[in-house]
């Protein structure tokens, strides 16, 4: 996409707001439509747009494979660890009431932590899938194998 000047300029303008919007959806999910699943996807879309218009090589320099692969696990671990913390604080697994002295505030913090975990895993999985598909040479030559 080297020669598409308009696409390149528009992408440069759009990527930032998309990331910001992803964060908004992530942390405003308690009050309006949104949450971890949607935010993760929107966040991944911003990186995909960058990867499609500029090259995949540039994107891989920015977000290397190993970071993406570790983020997949980190999100799930964050979710599970929230459950374990409530377990050690004397509640049931994923019972957020014990996280704070006021029960409903504990619920708020628990929901934020869990949604963050969901968002990170979904973001990383979507990006990893994009890497896997886009990173393959389009027509495989027999000599390459």
């Amino acid at each position: 996409m080297e020669h598409h000047l308009i696409l390149r300029v528009v992408t440069k303008i759009l990527v930032g707001p998309i990331l910001l919007y992803g964060l908004y959806v992530q942390f405003h999910g308690d009050f309006g439509p949104g949450g971890g699943f949607q935010a993760g996807v929107i966040f991944a879309v911003a990186f995909m747009l960058y990867g499609i218009v500029f090259s995949l090589r540039e994107l891989r320099k920015l977000v290397p494979d190993w970071i993406v692969h570790q983020l997949i696990a980190i999100g799930l671990l964050l979710y599970t660890c929230t459950g374990l913390v409530t377990l050690f604080l004397g509640g049931n697994f994923l019972d957020y009431n014990v996280l704070w002295s006021v029960a409903y505030k504990g619920q708020h913090y628990g929901i934020i932590a869990v949604e963050l975990g969901v968002g990170i895993t979904v973001f990383a999985v979507m990006l990893a899938i994009y890497y896997a598909f886009a990173g393959r040479p389009p027509q495989l030559d027999d000599k390459d194998w």
């Binding site: 699943f37 979904v122 899938i129 598909f133 393959r136």
Partner: peptide, 24 residues
């Protein structure tokens, strides 16, 4: 349904990955 949609696209991509391997 919200969770099912995201799980659906993840499993769809698994199917697409299998198609790519079959084509190879």
């Amino acid at each position: 349904i919200l969770t099912a949609i995201v799980v659906g696209v993840a499993t769809t991509s698994l199917g697409l990955a299998l198609i790519v391997r079959i084509n190879e």
